[in-house]
Design a binder for these strands. Sequence first.
DNA 1: ATAAAGTATGTATTTTAAACATAATTGCTA
DNA 2: TAGCAATTATGTTTAAAATACATACTTTAT
Lengths: 229, 229
Amino acid sequence: MIFNETKTHEITVDVVIVTMKNDALQVLLVKRTNEPFKDKWAIPGGYVRLSENLDQAALRILKERTNVDNIYLEQLYTFGDPLRHPNSRVITCAYFALVRAEDINIVTTPELGWHKISALPPLAFDHKEIIEYSMKRTRERLELCPVAYQLLNEKFTLTEMQRAYELIMRKKLDKRNFRKKALCTNGLIELDEYTKSSSKRPARLYTFENIELNSKRAHFISKKKEKKC
Amino acid sequence: MIFNETKTHEITVDVVIVTMKNDALQVLLVKRTNEPFKDKWAIPGGYVRLSENLDQAALRILKERTNVDNIYLEQLYTFGDPLRHPNSRVITCAYFALVRAEDINIVTTPELGWHKISALPPLAFDHKEIIEYSMKRTRERLELCPVAYQLLNEKFTLTEMQRAYELIMRKKLDKRNFRKKALCTNGLIELDEYTKSSSKRPARLYTFENIELNSKRAHFISKKKEKKC
DNA sequence: ATAAAGTATGTATTTTAAACATAATTGCTA
DNA sequence: TAGCAATTATGTTTAAAATACATACTTTAT
């Protein structure tokens, strides 16, 4: 490939959209209908419009695909290898989004659907690397703030919360220690509601205080301040 | 400003180059000679060439300005507000670099020089925000790995190392606790050399094992593994 | 010799993390 | 209606890590 140094770059935004479904972390992928990488899966993306900033482009793409717009969204990294796109110079600014399964109402088709992160199909471009990096970042975030709740339904049990942590951190956690710490998490609210039925003891439901998402880099990230508990 | 949606973006790389000099963190700035922001200071940057990736562009800019090339360099964030450049749409991928004062041999002129981060002159574009974010990122890194040594001379005293930590973290540290932990830092090597003279007790010198810089996102970042000590 | 300046060092206390086992509540079924 | 299966709920002990804190040592200059 010979580069023409006067040609301009194209810039896209790609969004890794992650949710928790069927007891697994899943990512939303679209099947490419054109070359290059025809019939391979790709993360949703699009060109940045001249009138919008990068966050807005990512939100637009997310909204177009999932119709959700109040989610955890964070710029991940910008990938600019000259060879990442086989026939033009496309720099992509990757974002990742954590969304609640219950908030999304997409019709999955053979061209759009959720894929377990632990078993990804062949992906276009450098999208495998982008997804892997988004999981790394999610782990790092989770050590600083309880982003995992962005994957949980509005009301959730501590067992579900623990499961989200385990999937993200890729290790089993001790139930008693987890609950002890979880209960001290700032923003966690204990409800007077319980799951019902299914031949077992009902579990108490919890929710999180609404935290404003203002789409400025690392949202609401702060050292977990503990309640005095 | 009316946007023509068909116009292409321009993409630049800007590098926040930080060093420790005169007991302060300082950043390298160039004075703009043209509009916009004529006579304001800016962080060094340039267009990304079609044949190079973003890391290479950042390394090239760094090398052009400082003639150093084995340094800590990390992609910071991509800034893409449509109004960040007053008369065209320029998206910039910002990097930050930590360099040793002793490695740099630049001639400072009225148009190129070091500025204390604690007292920045008026800056062009959104460069103030970029510098502030680079300091935030440096603090986050320092909690994970001893990047501070990238600012120190090859041989340094523990007092100098502590000072670098204090400047980055913006707080005073306890000398005994600092030294206790510093001595357990993986990669730190105790030398049989001492500073000499200056009317006080000589201080032992230390150095760091060479860690390979491979310029792939978060370089050599890992939880500080402790020596058994 | 001694004063000044900076280097060097250890212990006790508090906080946080880790390990670990049993009782309680529900629906189902015999 | 007794008891089984499945899952929720809970507390204590131990180990590790972080914090607070004061004095003696080594050198040069006077």
